[in-house]
Simulated scan of single mutants.
Amino acid sequence: MNAPTIRPATAADLPEIDRIFRTSFCDTFAHLYQAEDLAAFLGGFTPAGWTAEFTDPAYAFAVGLIDGEIAGYAKLGPNKLPHVESEGTVELKQLYLLKAAHGSGLAAQLMEWALAEARRRQARRMALSVWSENWRAQAFYRRFGFADRGPVTFMVGNHPDEDRVWEASL
């Protein structure tokens, strides 16, 4: 396996980004939900929705490749989370990898891209949310200087999850 690489996403990458999102989300979380709640949640992610975010200059996407194949991505956008000051804050909306990419260093590279892109956009802070029981993700974000700021409800269909809002100064 070659070292992972990062590049800006293109519109042509959106179907693969969608596939990685669905695969990673389901691999990690599907067991927590009733089928109808999971289907309702995933149904909110459409080709038109991905395209609208991709073409909105308030968002930024990068993909991570291993051996020339997209194995993960990161997406930044406007902060919608509580517990952090909105002005000057960018939100890490998504950072997903396929299971085969775990341990490859790709997640760290995508996180470095996200932090650099937030700084390029002159953000002073980055916020994100993570499931309250996703200890692996929380340890990962802690390594990048993020701290827990409080709870937020994350809906998957009609199922409320407790996520935690994390924030880092840039």
Rank of each mutant, 00 (worst) to 15 (best):
G64W: 01
N79P: 01
A139G: 15
V130H: 09
A74F: 00
E53N: 07
A137L: 11
A123C: 09
K75Q: 05
Q122P: 04
V90D: 00
T89S: 02
M155V: 10
R142H: 14
A127L: 06
L95I: 15
A62Q: 01
L81H: 11
T89P: 11
Y59N: 10
A100M: 04
L98N: 02
H102T: 08
Y73F: 15
R119K: 14
P82R: 11
D148E: 14
D56H: 03
G68W: 00
D56N: 15
W131S: 09
Q122N: 12
D148R: 13
P57E: 03
L76Q: 07
Q109N: 09
D67F: 08
A74Q: 00
Y96M: 09
H102A: 10
A71F: 03
A108Y: 08
Y96E: 06
E53Y: 03
A71G: 08
T153Y: 05
A123V: 08
K75L: 05
L76R: 08
A114D: 05
Y141L: 02
V156F: 03
A101C: 00
H102L: 13
A116T: 13
H83S: 05
E85S: 14
G105Q: 09
V152G: 11
R124T: 13
T55E: 12
E53R: 15
N134W: 00
V130A: 15
M155P: 10
E133A: 12
A123W: 05
R124P: 06
E133I: 12
T55C: 05
T153R: 12
Q122F: 07
L128C: 04
N134C: 09
A74D: 02
W113H: 01
F61T: 02
Q109W: 06
L97A: 09
K93C: 11
A62I: 10
P151N: 14
G145N: 13
G49E: 05
P78Y: 00
G77Q: 11
L98P: 01
M126Q: 10
G77L: 05
E91Y: 09
R124K: 15
L110I: 13
L110R: 12
H83C: 02
F140T: 11
S104Y: 01
A74S: 13
T153N: 04
G88T: 12
A52W: 00
E112P: 05
Q122Y: 07
G145R: 13
A118K: 03
Q122W: 03
F54E: 05
A71L: 06
S86D: 11
A118Y: 05
V156G: 07
A137W: 09
L98M: 05
A118T: 12
A114M: 07
M155K: 12
N134K: 11
R121N: 10
N79Y: 04
W135Q: 14
A52L: 00
L92Q: 10
K75S: 01
L65N: 04
E133Q: 14
L97S: 01
T55V: 10
R143H: 07
L95M: 14
G68R: 11
R136Q: 12
G145Q: 13
G64Q: 08
A118R: 02
V84M: 00
A116Y: 00
S104Q: 00
I70V: 14
A60G: 11
N79D: 11
